[in-house]
Amino acid sequence: MERRAVCPGSFDPITNGHLDIIERASRLYDVVHVAVLINKSKQGLFTVEERIQLIKEVTAEYGNVVVESHHGLLVDYCKDREIPAIVKGLRAVSDFDYELQMAQMNNGLTGVETVFIPTSPTYSFLSSSLVKEVATYGGDVSHLVPESVLRRLIERIAERRQS
């Protein structure tokens, strides 16, 4: 039987921190689903389709990553695909407080387990929001996102400025 897990997130945009967790999960599991969670109340910098495409591009080398979007409860996504584990990266103790509550709720709802992977110290401060903010003000984020993501990020910020 295949060992399967899901790495959920908004990935707006995907960062090197996200990639670190996805890559490490891809070594632990036979198939890793990356679920781009849709939040209708948030206006993203990238569309869900663009995020999926970017993630597919930067995870293609792993060979065992499936990228999809999902609207609704993550446990429903897991149940529909018979995925027994959620993989989450932890940057700091503050992440743990929130993620532990989510893990307990998800396990209580459907029995799905959550596996926590500590983020590499290199990326312990990193978030998509921070990347967008720094890039918007012209800061160098080239070491925080893959090259193809950086190109699209710079293009999108320029497009937004012109509109």
Rank of each mutant, 00 (worst) to 15 (best):
M1I: 04
E2D: 14
R3L: 14
V6K: 00
C7P: 01
S10K: 06
D12C: 13
T15W: 15
G17W: 13
L19C: 05
D20T: 02
I21P: 00
I21D: 00
I22A: 01
R24M: 09
S26C: 11
L28G: 09
D30F: 13
V31K: 15
V31G: 12
H33V: 12
H33I: 15
H33K: 05
V36P: 00
L37V: 13
I38Y: 01
N39I: 02
S41C: 04
K42V: 13
Q43S: 07
Q43I: 01
T47Y: 01
V48M: 05
E50I: 03
E50G: 09
I52L: 09
L54V: 02
I55T: 03
A60P: 10
E61K: 13
Y62T: 08
N64F: 10
V66L: 05
L74P: 03
L74V: 08
L74W: 12
Y77A: 12
A85L: 10
A85I: 02
L90N: 04
R91F: 12
R91Q: 12
V93H: 07
S94V: 11
D95G: 08
F96W: 11
L100H: 09
Q104N: 08
Q104T: 15
M105T: 12
N106S: 13
N107Y: 08
G111D: 07
G111I: 00
V112S: 07
F116T: 04
P118I: 04
P118R: 10
S120G: 02
T122W: 13
F125T: 09
S127V: 04
L130P: 00
V134N: 01
A135S: 07
Y137S: 02
G138T: 03
G139S: 06
V141I: 09
V141A: 04
P146A: 12
P146C: 12
S148P: 03
V149M: 13
R151L: 11
L153Y: 02
L153F: 14
E155W: 12
E155N: 08
E155G: 03
E155F: 15
R156P: 02
R160L: 13
R161E: 05
Q162D: 10
